[in-house]
Amino acid sequence: MNMRFSRNDIEQKAKCFRVRMGLNTTEAIDVKTILRKNNILTVYLPMSKDACGLSLQSPEKDKFILVNSKISKGRQHFTIAHELYHLYYDEYPHPHICFKDGISNTERAANCFASALLMPEEGVIGLIPESILK
């Protein structure tokens, strides 16, 4: 079932997720800290050039993320943030590989969440000198 997601709703989820993880709502984060803190088993292996990663959750609620080790470190961090959305917010989670060109509404929502988690609007605006914002 594909639902429409508003950007504001997804950004709010990312902000709430940061708070729930005990993180500042504006500063840069280390996604690997989130993985360790939540005991999410994460494996880095070479995958096809179009695949970024996948996530799974067991019936016992154990979480797992596979990340393509062939993609850049920045893309790996984005992929982890994207997969965190699937693990914590997918209404009907199911195992699937996330490709660079994911087009479903859920994939768009996960991309928006990853962007907001890694680069919250408040934090980015806070870095811009006021003279430029005027």
Rank of each mutant, 00 (worst) to 15 (best):
E27W: 12
Q12V: 12
C52G: 08
I29T: 05
R75G: 05
P95D: 09
N105M: 11
I40A: 01
T79Y: 02
P46I: 04
N111R: 15
R75I: 15
P120Q: 08
I97D: 05
F113Y: 09
E27K: 04
L66G: 14
L87S: 13
F113C: 01
S48E: 10
S55M: 10
Q76F: 09
D9F: 12
T25S: 15
F64M: 06
S104A: 05
E122I: 15
L54D: 11
T106L: 03
P129T: 01
E121C: 02
V43N: 13
L66T: 14
L118I: 05
Y89C: 00
N38S: 00
R18Y: 12
F17K: 13
H77D: 00
N38T: 01
A114M: 04
T106K: 11
E11M: 03
P95T: 02
Y89M: 05
D50V: 07
N111P: 14
M21H: 07
L127A: 09
Q57C: 09
G74D: 06
P93N: 03
R4C: 09
V67S: 08
D90Y: 13
K15I: 15
P46L: 09
L66S: 05
L118Q: 03
C112Q: 06
Y85G: 01
S69H: 04
V31L: 02
V19M: 15
R4M: 10
G53W: 02
F64S: 01
Y85M: 08
K15M: 12
D101F: 11
E60L: 07
K49M: 02
Y85D: 10
S104V: 01
A81W: 00
L87W: 11
F17T: 00
I80F: 07
S131M: 09
P129L: 10
F113W: 06
A109G: 12
H77S: 13
D50N: 15
G53F: 10
A109H: 07
R4H: 10
F78A: 04
K63L: 08
L41H: 14
D9R: 06
K49L: 12
N111T: 15
S58A: 04
N24I: 04
K70W: 11
T106D: 15
Y85T: 00
A14G: 01
Y88S: 12
L56C: 08
I71D: 04
I65R: 07
A114F: 10
G53V: 13
A114Y: 08
P93K: 00
D101T: 02
S48W: 11
I103R: 13
K49P: 01
L45W: 00
E130H: 15
H77C: 10
A28T: 06
A51K: 03
K61H: 10
L56Q: 04
Q57D: 04
S72T: 14
N39G: 02
N8H: 14
M1P: 11
H86P: 02
L66W: 11
D90I: 03
D101E: 03
K13C: 07
R108P: 01
L117Q: 06
A114W: 04
D30P: 03
D9Q: 03
G22P: 10
K37L: 09
T33I: 09
Y89R: 03
T26E: 03
L84S: 05
